[in-house]
């Protein structure tokens, strides 16, 4: 299985998962090296807190801006680049109102695409190979663990996770307990 060393506990409910998190923290593990996986968001619990505020709304706005500008340029260019000067219904070559519609639609498209790309990158999606994962998460368990723990503290972590209420404690790499 995985080559990365880890040790983790599977907790049956968010309350005990929070205790597991505290137990690891009190053993001196930094918050950002604690690994958490849960079957639902569990907003409001300590373990479910994400690292920092996301800049996704700004990325979406930027995408919208890029989309809008390219939309107007598209509307403008496709009309002026025509081989002959096209007159149509007595309207100006680059008609502002219809160009506005294309600009608007591409603004929204830009914002939507930027959001998707930002999500895929920042949530580290599109990586199908996991170093550490446990399908038990999909049976309702919450995974709290440590990546690459020092070998001398391994027993300590195992005890702490168990005391906090972990139903099972497992490991990967050298600590493969399964």
């Amino acid at each position: 299985m995985a080559s990365v060393d880890s040790i983790y506990g599977l907790f049956p409910d968010p309350g005990s998962a929070d205790r597991g998190l505290k137990a690891l923290q009190s053993a001196g593990v930094r918050r950002d090296s604690i690994l958490v996986m849960s079957p639902e968001p569990f907003e409001g619990y300590e373990f479910a807190r994400s690292d920092r505020r996301s800049s996704m709304p700004w990325i979406a706005a930027l995408g919208g801006l890029v989309g809008g500008v390219s939309g107007y340029l598209l509307a403008w260019y496709t009309q002026v680049a025509y081989p002959s000067r096209i007159i149509s219904g007595g309207m100006p070559l680059v008609s502002k109102w219809p160009s506005g519609i294309v600009t608007y639609e591409l603004t929204m498209l830009g914002a939507i695409l930027a959001t998707i790309i930002a999500l895929l990158i920042s949530a580290k999606l599109l990586h199908w190979k996991f170093d550490i994962y446990d399908p038990e998460v999909s049976y309702g368990k919450i995974l709290i663990g440590v990546v690459d723990p020092a070998s001398e503290s391994r027993m300590d972590f195992e005890d702490r996770l168990r005391d906090a209420g972990a139903e099972k404690v497992k490991g990967t790499g050298r600590f493969n307990l399964a």
């Binding site: 149509s88 219904g89 007595g90």
Partner: peptide, 19 residues
């Protein structure tokens, strides 16, 4: 028509105004 309603609605400029 000089301001022909048929012209601008065509998506491909098949209907257009000649010089």
């Amino acid at each position: 028509c000089d301001a022909a309603p048929c012209e601008p609605v065509c998506p491909t400029f098949a209907s257009y105004h000649t010089d």
